[in-house]
Amino acid sequence: MPLPKILARAAGLATEAGSGALQQLQHLRLPGVGQASVTDDPDTAARRWRAVTVLTDPEQLRTETPAPLARFGDRLEVRVTPAPGDRGAELAARFRSPVTEEELGELRSALREAKQRIETGEVLRNEPQPHGHRAQTPQGKALDGMDERAAKEGVL
């Protein structure tokens, strides 16, 4: 099956603005396509530890909660453990009580941000980028919506 077709299905035939499309892509089960993401029910999903591995000294990371995670206050539990091998530290976080998909998305992007700040000293930006005329097609709109959500989505 060609990817455009998979996407079109995932995006509800690309009729909606696409913010939901990406989420659907991750939960998509099509014959022969497989599935990258988890099948947790929403309650389990909300309580699952979400983790990034950061190439840094675990002891140092433990002394201060990274700013992007500290923003959540005590709604989050944060855990730092040494990663096996020479991989640094595992930085994990989870909500203390059930949350919305949007809040989960904010946690994903906060974990990625925390990792980037520690490893590279800044958060990578990709807007604005030079581009030409954006024709307003349904597929284009769906992709814009996905793009907007992509920092908050993924299997993290």
């Binding site: 980037q116 590279t120 299997v155």
Partner: peptide, 30 residues
Amino acid sequence: CGNCWYCKQEQYSLCDNGNAAPGITEGLWG
């Protein structure tokens, strides 16, 4: 980025920090 574990292994195209919006590829490839 040159600083993540993958970059340190010289597997630069796998850099953890080179894609600011990894949601699409994580969904496709895990």
